[in-house]
Design a protein around this nucleic acid. Structure first.
Lengths: 159, 159
DNA sequence: ACTTAATAGTTGACGTATCAACCTTTATCT
DNA sequence: AGATAAAGGTTGATACGTCAACTATTAAGT
């Protein structure tokens, strides 16, 4: 493989369009920028703050460890973000008597208000993104995500 | 992922699996981590350094502005990365007499050597990722990327 | 029971990405 | 030509993500 590439080699690499990692990182950067902007304009949340609120909306009350298990976000980042959210009055913490390590997070009414305000535009943008494709395409896309992720997880194990 | 745990949903939100932005950012984080590791072990490049080398391999000689146009990477980041690569002897710069603003980047032989060494493992991982799906699935995936990106670009225009 | 391992969470260090300000040089407009 | 805008590139401030070290608490192993 490397030997076949010894001469003229402009374009020996895969074309840009087909570079998975690059394509994804570019797409993700755009999604990120858009979400960040919408959130800033609708309650001034950061993306990670929004994500924590989503978890609280989904599960009602969660620990940081649970969020880590569900999402694989970094626990350090989560810890810092949660701290800031408590200071802003968006969430409350409650320690668990039967396990003193745990710290349960929950939305405050104010947090709920901010979440509700950001929800519609965030949902709207997601729908716009997905509405450009058919149900089947959408399902295929999520399947592809899973396949790639699985294959990444596998590679990580075999080393 | 923990599917059994996902039952107790009282949120208004979409289930996690279907949150495009979240799914993509997680996938991208994993791809990123893997690539970073491979590059570190095969010549000690950073991801951005690798990407610049890929551009040089594809196009022979490029300016930063050209890379920005092709990839939409941040020009500040590119500038800094290129500077570091010159110091490491991976690339050379040559100013253009007919336009003194421009600065053309090209690979040094050493840069070529490093690129060649990293190429096989990087290509291998990409193939592994894509080989887990059929040609059709693969094509659909890239199409989906394009659709989402287009719909993002559109939204950005309409505001 | 007691030692060791695992889990929950916090913190600091560091690299990377993003954004805006700025300087130069070239294009455009009148 | 002269003024203004646009393009190429650099730099600084700042936010974000990642990793590892560390404390406290609980679970497991023998």
């Amino acid at each position: 493989m490397a030997t076949a590439r010894l001469q003229e080699r402009y374009g020996t690499a895969v074309p840009l369009r087909q570079m998975v990692s690059y394509r994804l990182s570019r797409l993700q950067a755009k999604l990120n920028a858009q979400a960040t902007k919408i959130l800033k304009e609708n309650g001034d949340l950061t993306l990670m703050q929004w994500r924590i609120l989503v978890m609280l909306d989904l599960y009602g009350e969660v620990t940081i460890a649970r969020i880590v298990r569900e999402t694989e976000f970094d626990k350090g980042l989560l810890s810092r973000t949660a701290k800031a959210m408590v200071q802003k009055g968006l969430i409350a913490t409650k320690s668990n008597d039967s396990d003193l390590r745990q710290n349960h997070l929950s939305m405050t009414p104010q947090g709920r208000g901010v979440f509700d305000r950001a929800f519609a535009p965030m949902r709207g943008r997601q729908d716009k993104l997905l509405n450009s494709m058919s149900d089947e395409q959408r399902e295929n896309l999520f399947e592809a995500f899973e396949m790639i992720e699985n294959s990444l997880d596998e590679m990580r194990e075999n080393e």
